[in-house]
């Protein structure tokens, strides 16, 4: 498993396309927003303190960039078969489960490196320009509690999905899924958006990191005593998947992300066992 982790990490991080695609994405967002997108100020008070500033960056980081991350991962598991590597790998005494786990963690880690670098870069820039070294500490905490669980889930999905369809088709469906299940407002149509099953960082942001205290009030919301809450959307379907954010719900979201990732990987493992005749 460690060997597979090392080599899969190495092969993925050395792919020129990884750096090109992320580079282009950042270039386009800078061109579109006029700055690096992660330091976008949402117009509230968030920018004034390191914690909410880093939370905003994390929310932005996990809004659209997981699309790039997922698409870059999509060929990694099926590639072994395409390259004709499975026979050699399967005749080694290293078990398939360990190799799958090593590959998963290795390629996910490698593909996340540019995201993590961008995020920590943003934190470092904030720490320097605002004279707030605490931003780095918060960035680390937020990274681990929001970005990592989301990427673990997305990574499992992106590795396993192409077992069932060509990677190109998977990428198209993945983009559609991403907008439907993570971006669109919950009131638009029945969706997993903003629910505990969506790979967004907001449950932790509001439930665990106290982000609600910093948000500016939308005009039609009355501020509850604990600050703005994240939870059910008035008038949306599937609201039972949108409990009110609390520390417990935030931890539940982390658990759900990891459990979903494990379930998807388990299915992938069973799939490879089934296709061996």
């Amino acid at each position: 498993m460690i060997a597979t982790f090392r080599y899969e990490f190495r092969m993925q991080i050395r792919r020129p396309v990884l750096w090109i695609v992320y580079g282009l994405t950042f270039a386009v967002t800078v061109a579109g927003f006029g700055h690096t997108y992660l330091d976008l100020n949402l117009g509230g008070d968030e920018g004034r303190e390191p914690r909410p500033a880093m939370i905003v960056s994390a929310i932005l980081l996990t809004s659209l960039l997981p699309i790039v991350y997922g698409c870059l991962l999509a060929d990694r598991l099926v590639r072994d078969r395409r390259l004709g590597m499975t026979d050699v790998l399967d005749t080694t005494p290293a078990g398939r489960t360990g190799r799958l786990a090593g590959k998963y963690l290795g390629v996910c880690a490698a593909t996340a490196v540019p995201l993590v670098l961008a995020y920590l870069g943003r934190a470092a820039a904030y720490a320097v320009t605002e004279g707030e070294p605490a931003a780095l500490g918060w960035a680390a905490v937020i990274l681990v509690t929001t970005v990592v669980p989301a990427l673990l889930f997305v990574g499992a999905l992106a590795l396993a999905g192409p077992l069932l369809m060509p990677p190109l088709l998977f990428r198209v469906l993945f983009v559609v899924y991403w907008f439907w299940g993570n971006i669109i407002p919950a009131t638009m149509m029945p969706t997993l958006s903003h629910s505990i099953l969506s790979a967004n960082s907001q449950y932790v942001a509001y439930g665990l990191l106290g982000f609600g205290h910093y948000r500016e009030l939308p005009p039609n919301v009355i501020l509850p005593p604990g600050g703005i809450v994240y939870g059910p959307w008035p008038g949306a379907a599937l609201n039972f998947l949108r409990p009110e954010a609390s520390p417990a719900v935030a931890l539940l979201w982390i658990g759900v992300m990891i459990a979903l990732a494990a379930a998807v990987l388990l299915l992938a493992r069973l799939h490879t066992a089934r296709t061996e005749s």
């Binding site: 460690i2 060997a3 080599y7 050395r14 390259l83 080694t92 005494p93 290293a94 190799r99």
Partner: peptide
Amino acid sequence: LGVYPDLTARQFLDYIALLKG
């Protein structure tokens, strides 16, 4: 036989050797 095209011969052998224990 398939190989990983982006590895060198030495790296490829190193990887398989690790898998072989």
